[in-house]
Structure formats: C-alpha cells, structure tokens
Design a protein around this nucleic acid. Structure first.
Length: 104
DNA sequence: TAGATGACTAATA
DNA sequence: CTATTAGCCATCT
C-alpha cells in the first residue's frame, strides 16, 4: 500500500545515530491512528538491508523484540555502533536520540 | 465474510 | 514508574 511506501521512505531517511518511533512515523505520514500498521510495514520488511528497521523503536525507546532480522541483541549492537547508547534496562534515551524530521 | 492477530499508543488505576 | 483496558486498522486464517 501507499502507506507502506511512505513508511519505508521515512525509515530510510532516518539519519545515522538517530531513532524514531512507530507512532511518530504514523504521525509524520498524517495518520497517527495507524501506528500498528507501521509495525506491520516493517514486519513485512520487503527490502532488508535497505530499510533500517533497527532504528525504529516503540514509544518507550525499547526494541520491539517480537521479530528481528538477527535478534534484538544484534539490533542493539548496530545502534551502539551508530553512537546510540542504551541504559541498563536496554532503553534508548528518546529525548536525545529521537529523530526530528523538522530539524532535518 | 467474519473473527482473531499484532514490531502500537493513550488513558486509567 | 508498571499493569491493565480500550481503540485502532491492515493482514491472516
């Protein structure tokens, strides 16, 4: 769907060292109600390696964990490689790392 | 076609 | 802060 295309396009625009949430993506597209569909779009992940789904987290700043191309530990490592730091609970400081498209 | 499911979020306790 | 409930909507069975 076009919604999926929008999600993929946005996720691909997430700069290195930043993350965003499902709800924010949905809001950017203009359909804040479809937060779950954003998750679905990434679950489908038709272009692995192209779509940096590891930069998309839930509202708590935690990796979803239900599915991961290599496990959430791998995702965490990838994010740490990009300069993102997790706290002791494995949570990202969204205030610091949340991607703000307006500041782009 | 209908009901259940889910990489979610917001409200409430 | 966490736990539970309700709303949401594309996809699956």
């Amino acid at each position: 769907m076009a919604f999926f295309e929008d999600v993929y396009d946005l996720v691909k625009q997430i700069p290195k060292g930043k993350v965003t949430t499902y709800g924010h993506i949905a809001r950017m597209i203009g359909q804040p109600r479809k937060s779950k569909i954003v998750g679905w779009a990434l679950h489908s992940n038709p272009q692995p390696g192209i779509i940096p789904c590891h930069r998309v987290v839930n509202r708590k700043g935690e990796l979803s964990g239900s599915f991961a191309f290599g496990g959430i530990e791998v995702q965490k490592k990838l994010l740490e490689e990009e300069g993102i730091i997790f706290d002791v609970s494995g949570i990202i400081n969204l205030q610091e790392y949340l991607w703000k498209p307006d500041s782009q």
